[in-house]
């Protein structure tokens, strides 16, 4: 924590010096002090745009998790589905979102819907890949035991494979958060009337570069907040990594 604060301070100092010494136009790169000033001055505008973008990202991640987990389970249960669908999933990630996004906006308008769809389209992929791998890596000994107790396919999934895959799914969600933030900016660039991405898009031609950078800072802080919530969830869900208690009683 201390080290990351030191790194950030050092970078900010270097940046400030770089701008102050006049090597770059302040319209291209504002000094951190100017960005900080804008953060305070424009806090009302930044906050109202953040609520728009936060809703897009929140719903987008929820949709990505629902679709991602559902697909991972379906592909895990059916080998033929896996062979058929997995290449399509990879292909879906190869389609540049800038090509698809304007179409979605054209079809569904400037509302929340198309932005949630764009974010989910980008963010579901890491969830599927990581969860699918974890489901396949379930301890064979546990599955053998369940079979010896005549567990059905559904029971093996419910009692062993799914709980075993939970930590991986949370890891996938962490990657999804980072992707979702970028996705939200893309989606708002493609057509929107509010949100931090929209604000960035408007501020640059207005020569309000400091405001664009302030929006970036708010976005980054929001992403860090989401990832730390997930990291806390991950710590709660992890098992067997805490120090074992000294065994008491009969051994």
């Amino acid at each position: 924590m201390l080290i990351s604060v030191a790194i950030v301070l050092a970078l900010l100092g270097a940046w400030e010096l770089y701008v102050r010494l006049g090597s770059v136009d302040a319209l291209l790169l504002p000094a951190p002090s100017a960005v900080a000033e804008t953060l305070v001055e424009d806090r009302g505008m930044l906050w109202s745009n953040l609520t728009v973008t936060a809703a897009e990202i929140g719903f987008g991640i929820l949709l990505a998790l629902a679709v991602g987990l559902g697909l991972a389970i379906a592909l895990h249960l059916s080998r033929s589905a896996r062979t058929a669908v997995y290449p399509l999933l990879v292909a879906s990630q190869a389609v540049p979102i800038v090509v698809v996004a304007p179409l979605l906006i054209l079809w569904f308008g400037y509302d929340l819907g198309p932005k949630v769809a764009i974010i989910a389209l980008l963010a579901f992929f890491p969830v599927v890949v990581v969860t699918l791998d974890a489901l396949a890596a379930t301890d064979a000994e546990l599955l053998r035991l369940l079979r010896s107790m005549d567990a059905t396919r559904w029971q093996r999934l419910r009692f062993v494979e799914l709980p075993a895959a939970v930590p991986a799914a949370v890891s996938g969600a962490k990657v999804a958060v980072a992707v979702a933030v970028i996705g939200a900016v893309f989606a708002e660039y493609s057509g929107s009337d509010a949100g931090l991405g929209h604000l960035i898009l408007q501020s640059i031609p207005q020569l309000e570069t400091a405001r664009a950078w302030a929006a970036v800072v708010v976005l980054a802080a929001f992403a860090v907040l989401l990832v730390s919530i997930l990291a806390a969830a991950e710590r709660r869900l992890s098992y067997g990594t805490r120090l074992p208690h000294s065994p008491k009683g009969p051994s």
Partner: peptide
């Protein structure tokens, strides 16, 4: 089984009760 094959995320009681759940 040779290794106890307990579910690492479940407590002792849930592990013992697994066949009843099934």
């Amino acid at each position: 089984p040779q290794r106890d094959a307990l579910l690492p995320w479940a407590d002792a009681l849930d592990n013992a009760a697994l066949p009843l759940r099934l």
